[in-house]
């Protein structure tokens, strides 16, 4: 269990990492689709903060924060962004497909809703083999429109699987607002109809998310799957290609007033848990770590072309011809 100062540092790590990614993207150092987690840091920080190292996580294409906070090194994540051999997926996945089985991270999934069945299966295997492991599956509110969401909540409840469905409701499925795609926007009420415990929580408040995540993970560990809706917001565009025509600046500014890092920092400083000046030192330390990650990624090699068809079959490139 992470303490509250560590959670602040976790959120700052993700924030600074994402801001660096934005710069590196503008410098054309990293390419492809890149989805930043800026504004949503409290969710991954809190949920990962209550997991055991042996627990599993399945994330979406907006996965940098989840990887970093599940224990994947900034070096391995940044090298993956660069498509280099030392990336956590060997460079094959890129920003959207971060994997690190040693740290219990099973993607990085690019198909909305597609990670849920995988999470159900991981939890099923853990149950069948009587392993004490919880799987947390992250997805956006857009996934609620997918059939797999409904199939999987039902299946997890029906089979009493140790899985937590963590819905990161940032209000927009790319550019489509929740109320423009769902007749009933109360997601936890809808999830509860599948026969599992469901809560909605302020996703900008890391303490609130921690409180609920703790309960959810504990219940899931006992074989009762749960659903947690974290009401959050992304401060930046959906991806690097998004001109943000679907929301106005005032709305973004209103949400920025509830920046999860500012909220938590203010609270910790008021309570004396964080010394004055400590935050700047914390951020400087994080920036130095990210500098090292960038240097590592830039020095990491490119996979030789003769290995193009590797990793398709375990038996090697000839296996599937």
């Amino acid at each position: 269990m992470r303490d509250r100062v560590e959670l602040l540092r976790d959120m700052v790590l993700v924030r600074q990492f994402e801001e660096r990614c934005a710069r590196l993207y503008q410098e054309a150092k990293i390419r492809g689709f890149v989805h930043l987690y800026v504004g949503e840091e409290a969710v991954a920080a809190a949920v990962m903060g209550v997991l055991q190292p042996r627990d599993r996580a399945v994330a979406t294409y907006r996965d940098h924060g989840h990887a970093l906070l599940k224990g994947v090194s900034p070096e391995a994540v940044m090298a993956e962004m660069y498509g280099r051999v030392d990336g956590c997926s060997g460079g094959r996945g890129g920003s959207m497909h971060l994997f690190d089985v040693a740290h219990g991270l099973y993607g990085g999934h690019g198909i909305v809703g597609g990670g849920l069945p995988i999470a159900v299966g991981l939890a099923l295997a853990d149950k069948l083999q009587a392993r004490d492991r919880v799987t947390v599956c992250f997805f956006g509110e857009g996934a609620v429109a997918e059939g797999e969401f409904h199939e999987c909540l039902n299946l997890a409840a029906l089979w009493s699987l140790p899985v937590v469905f963590c819905c990161e409701n940032n209000l927009y499925a790319m550019g489509t607002a929740l109320e423009r795609s769902e007749a009933d926007t109360d997601l936890s009420v809808r999830a509860a109809t599948y026969g599992l415990a469901a809560w909605s929580v302020d996703g900008m408040d890391v303490d609130a998310v921690t409180h609920t995540a703790q309960r959810a993970v504990e219940m899931a560990r006992g074989g009762a799957p749960c659903f947690v809706e974290c009401r959050t917001y992304r401060f930046r565009a959906h991806s690097m290609y998004d001109p943000e025509l679907y929301r106005d600046r005032a709305e973004v500014e209103r949400w920025r007033e509830r920046d999860p890092i500012d909220l938590h920092r203010t609270r910790l400083e008021a309570s004396g848990d964080l010394e004055p000046g400590a935050f700047d030192a914390m951020r400087a330390g994080v920036d130095a770590a990210i500098d090292r990650a960038v240097a590592f990624a830039e020095s990491s090699g490119l996979e030789p072309l003769d290995q193009l068809t590797r990793h398709v079959y375990a038996a090697g490139p000839e296996a599937g011809r």
Binding site: G114, P117, I118, G121, L122, L124, A125, E148, L155
Partner: peptide
Amino acid sequence: SESAFVGAGIGAAIAG
């Protein structure tokens, strides 16, 4: 729920 149980098979296979 074909998608869910095929996907659950994938997840279970990954986990041993």
